[in-house]
């Protein structure tokens, strides 16, 4: 899976969770940049991403992700 493919699916997931079709994510995007991405939505997004890509983020990583780029790295690492 390429990075672009990940972003395509990731954007879709996030748009659905946050109910906003205009969201575009990039490597440097952080939660504060996105309208509605607060502490609670963060968990919902995490869970939705886990469902979409079929793997589980380690609990520790959930709280440590700095930006979307890191999340994408973790997705690619999981190899699915």
């Amino acid at each position: 899976m390429t990075r672009e493919e990940v972003y395509e699916r990731l954007n879709q997931v996030v748009r659905e969770v946050l109910d906003d079709e205009d969201i575009e994510l990039h490597d440097e995007t952080v939660a504060d940049d996105v309208e509605g991405w607060d502490s609670f939505e963060h968990i919902n997004i995490i869970v939705a991403v886990e469902e979409e890509f079929g793997f589980k983020f380690p609990m520790g990583k959930t709280i440590k992700m700095k930006n979307v780029g890191e999340m994408v790295d973790l997705i690619l690492e999981s190899g699915k």
């Binding site: 502490s39 609670f40 963060h42 869970v47 959930t62």
Partner: peptide, 15 residues
């Protein structure tokens, strides 16, 4: 937030 809320929200039960 990191040690109570997230584990709770992400728990199987709540999900």
């Amino acid at each position: 937030k990191d040690y109570i809320l997230y584990p709770v929200l992400k728990s199987k039960g709540l999900q």
